[in-house]
Amino acid sequence: MNLVFLAGASGNTQFWNPLIEQLPNNYTKQVIAYPGFHGTAAHPDIHSFDDLSNYVVAQIQQPSILIAQSMGGIFAIAATLQKTDLIKGLVLIATSGGINLERFKVQDWRQLYRQEYLESPDWFVTTKVDYEEFLSTIEIETLLIWGDQDPVSPIEVGQYLNQILKKSKLYIVDGGDHGLAKQDADEVAIQINAYLKDSV
């Protein structure tokens, strides 16, 4: 089985290193880089969020469990909806999951993102993807991991997804913020290892 890692808006593939080190060796690990992000060369055919999403989904070509953080969760949902035969499990960490966040009191990350990642295309922060009407059709075992100190994706978002996704379980990291998959990798790894053992 393959574990696919989908980073957040920074596209930093090294974000996952502390977590990957603690996951079972009998799984292959695939960290998908986003062309045009975090030092990865741009791709001539990627000009929009949809193009990038299609590119990411196309990289998944074997039975896989998706582990996604923040904006990476949108790609994970897209892959789950498009490749139902290949996606065997889903771990969403501090993400929107492609739902409209306007009803939640979330911190707007876009301005800070533009300042920090000047090379990233503008369409990445202006896109609005809405998969909400399709989420209830997802019937694979899903682990949701949120931090209770995350202003970008507060626990109310995780609780909402836990209601919509039929086979989901929500775990909350005490004191965890938006970077909890890296900063609290030990605790997150315990939850994912238990999920892999029990659910997949």
Rank of each mutant, 00 (worst) to 15 (best):
M1K: 12
N2A: 07
V4G: 04
L6H: 04
L6P: 07
G8V: 12
A9D: 03
F15V: 03
W16C: 04
N17G: 05
P18N: 07
L19P: 04
I20P: 01
I20N: 01
E21P: 08
P24R: 10
N26Y: 14
Y27T: 08
A33Y: 09
P35G: 11
P35C: 14
P35V: 10
F37D: 09
A42Q: 10
A42H: 13
I46H: 00
F49S: 05
F49Q: 11
D50Y: 09
D50V: 14
L52N: 05
S53H: 04
N54M: 10
Y55G: 04
V57F: 04
Q59F: 10
I60K: 00
Q61T: 13
Q61D: 13
Q61G: 04
Q62H: 14
P63T: 13
I65C: 04
I65T: 07
Q69E: 11
G73K: 06
F75T: 01
T80H: 02
T80Y: 00
Q82R: 14
L86P: 10
L92V: 06
L92D: 00
T95M: 08
T95V: 05
S96L: 02
G98D: 01
G98A: 13
G98Y: 02
I99S: 03
N100D: 15
R103K: 15
R103I: 12
R103Q: 13
R114T: 12
Q115W: 14
Q115E: 15
Q115Y: 11
L118R: 13
W123L: 02
W123S: 08
T127Y: 12
D130V: 11
Y131N: 03
E133Y: 10
S136A: 11
S136V: 03
I138G: 05
L143P: 03
L144G: 00
W146A: 10
D148E: 06
D148M: 09
Q149S: 14
P151R: 05
V152E: 14
S153D: 13
I155P: 07
E156R: 05
L161C: 02
Q163V: 12
K166R: 15
K166F: 07
L170H: 05
I172D: 06
G175H: 05
G176E: 01
G179P: 03
L180Q: 01
A181F: 00
K182F: 13
Q183F: 13
A189W: 06
I190T: 14
Q191H: 14
N193F: 04
A194Q: 15
Y195I: 04
K197Y: 08
S199T: 09
S199Y: 15
